[in-house]
């Protein structure tokens, strides 16, 4: 490996994040990484569901408020993209389904009663959001969850910032969501390993990235087995029950945000529909089916290594 490749890691957005930079000027690499980190932290602080002072918490707190809440242009753009996800998935990918994750708690591994689910379903529906100029009006009890969008967007935004700061060759990894700042020197692609959902320290496939990004969605550790049945953390907002299509999917696209939306939608679809839909997109992808068969398009055919 070229000696001028520098790697920096941080913990952010609920996971391990890494910046790999072939720095033109080493002295600037650390400074650049500091600025990239600042951007990651900014987005984390703004869109985390788990921070009491985040914008998303404020948005969720405003549910039922007749005056609504003022939304800045960046967040409005994320809502616009979430609307596209909602439309393109026929309502399967719905950021207003945040309330469901409260009853499907994968740490307690409890299957909620149908009555609990039925009580929440009326609080879900992207089409029930309304806008008055820049103010968002959300019905009472609704909860927004930007999962599947914000971390991917952050990877793209950080990669873009890296380019703007003069990095020509680099890769951003935010907890498994990758965005290319620039190909490796000599125009070599970055080979990204996709983790096996059954065993995190194993790879199920490798995908080469020259530009754009790669995002994954899947069960990974966040699922539980109850009475012999596997329950995924990915919940269908229409039924309120976890999906039982693909186990995991990774998609490469022109942007990590697009890859993340594609991967999330694929997880929500029935297995056959998901695979057909991914193939139709023409994007490289790797997927593990319910029967634990690995399939995909445009994969790096070298033998996967045993570790990430």
């Amino acid at each position: 490996m070229n000696p001028s490749l520098k790697r920096f890691s941080i913990n952010a957005m609920g996971g391990y994040c890494e910046f790999q930079i072939f720095d033109e000027s080493r002295i600037n690499a650390k400074r650049i990484v500091r600025q990239l980190t600042t951007e990651v932290r900014r987005l984390e602080q703004k869109y985390s569901r788990y921070r009491s002072n985040s914008l998303v918490t404020a948005i969720n707190y405003s549910a039922g408020d007749k005056l609504g809440i003022k939304i800045d242009s960046e967040t409005r753009s994320l809502f616009d993209h979430a609307l596209t996800c909602f439309e393109q998935s026929n309502g399967l990918f719905d950021i207003t389904a945040g309330a469901l994750s409260r009853i499907w708690d994968f740490r307690t591994a409890q299957v909620p009663a149908q009555a609990q689910i039925d009580a929440l379903l009326p609080r879900i529906g992207f089409n029930r959001l309304s806008w008055r100029n820049s103010r968002l009006l959300m019905p009472a009890g609704m909860e927004i969850d930007f999962g599947g969008i914000v971390k991917e967007y952050a990877a793209d935004a950080v990669a873009k910032l890296g380019r703007r700061l003069g990095v020509n060759h680099g890769l951003v990894n935010l907890g498994g969501d990758f965005a290319v700042i620039g190909a490796q020197p000599d125009n070599q692609p970055w080979t990204v390993g996709v983790a096996d959902p059954k065993q995190r320290d194993r790879l199920m496939a490798k995908i080469d990235l020259l530009y754009g990004g790669l995002a994954s969605s899947g069960d990974y550790e966040r699922c539980f087995i109850h009475k012999g049945k596997r329950y995924s953390h990915i919940v269908n907002p229409k039924t309120g029950w976890p999906c039982d299509g693909l186990r995991a999917v990774s998609v490469a696209a022109n942007l990590c945000t697009v890859a993340g939306s594609m991967a999330t939608i694929a997880m929500l679809k029935d297995e056959q529909a998901a695979l057909g839909w991914l193939q139709e997109s023409g994007l490289p992808f790797a997927a593990m089916t319910g029967e634990e068969r690995i399939t995909g398009e445009g994969l790096n055919e070298q033998q996967p290594e045993s570790s990430l």
């Binding site: 951007e39 960046e74 753009s77 994320l78 993209h81 967007y153 793209d156 950080v158 873009k160």
Partner: peptide, 9 residues
């Protein structure tokens, strides 16, 4: 289309 309109991108 909507992803490309995001301000960071």
């Amino acid at each position: 289309t909507t992803a490309l309109a995001l301000p960071g991108i």
